Simulated scan of single mutants.
Amino acid sequence: MHRRSLLAALAASGALTTLAACGGEDGSSDAGSTSRAGTPAAAGDGAFPVTIEHKLGSTTIESAPTRVVTVGYNEEDFVLALGVTPVGARTPLGSYDATRRPWAVDLLPAGGIPSVGQSELNFETIASLQPDLIIGAYAYLEQADYDKLSAIAPTVGDVIPAGEGADSTAAASWQEELQVIGRALGKADEASALTQDVEGDFQDAVDAHPEFTGKTVSVVLYNQGYYQLDSADPRGDFFLQFGFDENPSTSADGGLSEEQVVELDTDVLVVLGQSAQEFAANPVAAGLAVVTEGRTVYVPTFDSDFAGALGNSSPLSLPYAVEQAVPALAAAADGDPGTVPATL
């Protein structure tokens, strides 16, 4: 599903948003201070200089960075997962309070990480933090904003997904994002090991639940309309990693009218943004066999920890999301029409 088609739908749905970074908003909280040193990103297994290719060109990082700023929608988690504390980070959009996220709370410094903006980036704040590396691997940076950031410090732009060109609007997988960030920090081997660990969590779930394999799953997000999330969206792809097959009837832009909700009648359905009662207020939805037979999982609010973990889609949040999701999916796929639908 193309990200630009979800502009309205995703603005309130958590860390992964469709708003491009641009200048001016002051979202800082003590962000102007330059006295706090970030955790050094020692070269470790990586050799410098290293050149990173991305959608807006290539960036050469001459030496191991020690003051990292993240300007995208989930990179803070990726950097923390590799043992580096950024000196500044973008505040996620949406209603979820990311400062409380259980998968990262032990890694956050007292007082939190200074904000460099939210819907818009604050370039003055970023400059005042004196970064030696800026990471925007999942930021959907415009060229003008990238140029401003590059004038401050070497900047890694959006990751090019495998098999795509630099003009693609598709998002890279979390594995591809982690690989690029690992190289930029001189921690490529650590990133590879972490990838194997997280992929192992998914594989453990697949092995424990062979009933998932071969069943179809639909993931629908409601935000002033219905949007079906497919494998091109990290949240849609999350559920496919358990062995489910993708709904073959996904439309080109993911948008569904109330009548087209009938296309969601697959073996398992995941509803983001509505409770069971809210979803069933649509008579078409209420009549779906996947609903009446208890084969649906509901994530009614975007400010829950599960929704936040799913939105971040990071190597820190994904294990938490797997742990939460598997029992709910097992209940939905158990073949018992009397099963009470799970809520996450």
Rank of each mutant, 00 (worst) to 15 (best):
L194S: 06
T195H: 10
T195L: 09
Q196L: 15
D197P: 01
V198H: 01
E199L: 15
G200E: 07
G200P: 00
D201P: 00
D201T: 08
D201E: 12
F202E: 07
F202P: 00
F202N: 07
F202W: 14
F202S: 06
Q203P: 04
Q203F: 11
Q203R: 15
D204I: 10
D204E: 15
D207M: 13
D207V: 15
A208W: 13
A208V: 14
H209T: 12
H209V: 10
H209S: 14
P210E: 11
P210M: 14
E211S: 12
E211Y: 03
E211V: 09
F212W: 10
F212L: 10
F212I: 12
F212T: 05
F212A: 08
F212S: 07
G214F: 06
K215H: 04
K215W: 03
V217H: 04
V217P: 02
V217Y: 03
S218Q: 04
V219M: 02
V220Q: 00
V220H: 00
V220C: 00
V220M: 02
L221Q: 13
L221A: 13
Y222L: 04
Y222M: 04
Q224Y: 14
Q224F: 15
Q224H: 14
Y226A: 03
L229H: 04
D230T: 10
S231D: 09
S231C: 02
S231V: 03
A232D: 15
D233L: 10
D233K: 09
D233M: 09
R235Q: 03
R235D: 01
G236R: 01
G236M: 03
F238V: 02
F238A: 01
F239M: 06
F239L: 05
F239A: 05
L240T: 05
L240W: 05
Q241S: 07
Q241N: 08
Q241I: 04
F242Q: 01
F242D: 01
F242L: 04
G243T: 13
G243K: 08
G243H: 02
F244H: 03
F244A: 01
D245I: 01
D245Q: 14
N247Q: 12
N247L: 09
P248W: 06
P248M: 06
P248C: 08
P248D: 05
T250D: 02
T250K: 11
S251N: 10
A252Q: 09
D253I: 06
G254M: 12
G254T: 13
L256H: 07
L256P: 06
L256Q: 05
S257K: 14
E258T: 05
E258N: 14
